[in-house]
Structure formats: C-alpha cells, structure tokens
C-alpha cells in the first residue's frame, strides 16, 4: 500500500527545474532513501512534499488524497501526519523556548483531533518525559534550553517533537549531517528503532550513501533535479546500477 505517491513533480526557480519530473512511491512502513549531492534538488523536493513550497506541475498523493493544490487550512489535517527532521537541530529549535515547550508545540495544535496509541497524555510533564524517554534522553531535560545541551541531544529533541503526535511519515532531511561520527551512529540507530516501534514511514534524504544504505529498504539516486536510479537496497552492488550510482559507491 502506498502511503505517498509522487507523479511527474516539477518545481522550477527562474526557469530552471530544481525538481524535474520526479515520480516515486513510498510504501507504508518503509524507509525510502534519497541520495544526491548538495544542490541536486533534494531539499527542494522535501519542501514541496511538505507544501512549504508551491508545486508547479505534477501530483502528490498522500493517503489517497491529492495534496499539491490544497491551501494552508486544508493542509492542516495532513500536516499532522507528515513531520520533518532538519539537518541542523540548533536552527530547528527556538532558542528562547524551553525544550518541553518545543516538544509540546505540535501536540497543543492537534490536541482535539489526536487519538494517541503509543503515547498518552495525562499531564504536560508526564507527556514530555515519556517522549524524552522514547528518544533516549533523561527525564527532566524538558526544563532546559537548547543551548544547554549537546548537538546530538538537540537532534533527539527534534525527533521527540516530530513523533509526539504519532505521524504516519517522517521526512528526514540530512538528520545526521551536522553531528559527529559517534553521535551520527547513535541517532541513526534510534531512527531505525523508532520506525519499527511506531510503524513510521521515512523519506530519508542524505548525501551519505552509507547512512542511507543502513536505514533504507529502497534507494533513489537524484542528480540535477532528476531521479536517475531507483532500486531495492539489496541491489546496490548490482551491475545494472546507473553510472552515477556506481560513482557514489566508489566514494564510500
């Protein structure tokens, strides 16, 4: 069953197609890796999927509903089901807000529509602690500010915020790129566990083929706005791979 289905998606800036007729499907419960160099259009693609950018042509179908033309208020119920993890956790957290307030942000928006199955809300503190625990952070960290904790911990906080309303899908936009090696491995492992525990689907965007390889079931390779190769992870070393994919494999 396809959770997300993209057909012929086009987004251009000044006449240049940053996203150039892209089509793919993301199956429910799966992690789809998207690999490409910086500037290949993968971040633009993620913004289009989230409808933070308008779309020039093509369709985005999420849970059997076309979302490419919806306006902000129509998008609201959809936003509940697609969350994003950004590359830089420092920028992704409001420095003036305590961690618990950042984590509570989505919940307070969707309170009325939510029926949580994995988490439960009895009080704010209890709920925040539950989420902190789910991402491997100590209870009570909610009372601190982002600048008081490490980069890896900050990324865990943004993950806690994203999973707090139990979305169907996470877009991971280079979630480990700004972390050091050991922390990278830990965060990747956490993301892998969470996907299984919470039955999440991921679109995992990265320039790091090894990380994508570790987490994904399907891999797409993007170059200059186009998907040049798409294959199940077991076929990574197959002879049929696109020459650009082979070039990437060579690097890692």
């Amino acid at each position: 069953m396809n959770l997300l289905s993209v057909k012929d998606l086009v987004k251009s800036y000044n006449g240049i197609n940053a996203v150039d007729h892209i089509s793919f499907d993301l199956k429910k419960g799966e992690c789809l890796g998207l690999v490409g160099e910086s500037g290949c259009g993968k971040s633009t693609l993620s913004r289009c999927l989230l409808r933070l950018e308008s779309v020039d042509a093509g369709s985005i179908t999420f849970k059997d509903k076309e979302i490419q033309k919806l306006n902000q208020s129509q998008l609201r119920p959809i936003r509940k089901d697609i969350q994003i993890i950004f590359q830089n956790p420092t920028a992704a957290l409001n420095p003036r807000l305590k961690i618990k307030d950042s984590i509570l942000d989505p919940y307070l928006q969707y309170q009325k529509e939510l029926s949580l199955t994995h988490f439960s809300f009895t009080s704010k503190d209890q709920y925040v602690n539950q989420l902190l625990e789910a991402v491997g952070l100590p209870k009570g960290m909610g009372d601190r500010y982002p600048h008081e904790i490490s980069g890896g911990q900050r990324q865990r906080v943004t993950i806690a915020r994203a999973i707090s309303i139990e979305p169907e899908m996470l877009i991971l936009d280079e979630p480990t790129a700004s972390l050091d090696v050991i922390t990278q491995a830990e965060v990747l492992a956490l993301l892998g566990e969470l996907r299984q525990q919470l039955q999440l689907s991921y679109l995992f965007i990265s320039h790091d083929l090894t990380a994508v390889n570790q987490l994904s079931q399907q891999i797409m390779v993007m170059k200059k706005g186009k998907i040049v190769d798409q294959f199940p992870v077991s076929q990574l070393f197959s002879e049929d791979r696109h020459s650009y994919t082979k070039e990437l494999i060579e690097i890692f």
Binding site: L52, R79, F86, A92, L93, S102, R161, I165
Partner: peptide
C-alpha cells in the same frame, strides 16, 4: 527563515500562533 519556524508551520501552527 530559520528551520524552527518551518517546523512550526509543518506542525500546523497558524501565523498568529
């Protein structure tokens, strides 16, 4: 321009919130 505002938008917050 910062990501946390984008995150807030993806969390469905209105401009006012």
């Amino acid at each position: 321009k910062k990501d946390y505002i984008l995150a807030a938008r993806t969390n469905g917050l209105s401009s006012f919130s």
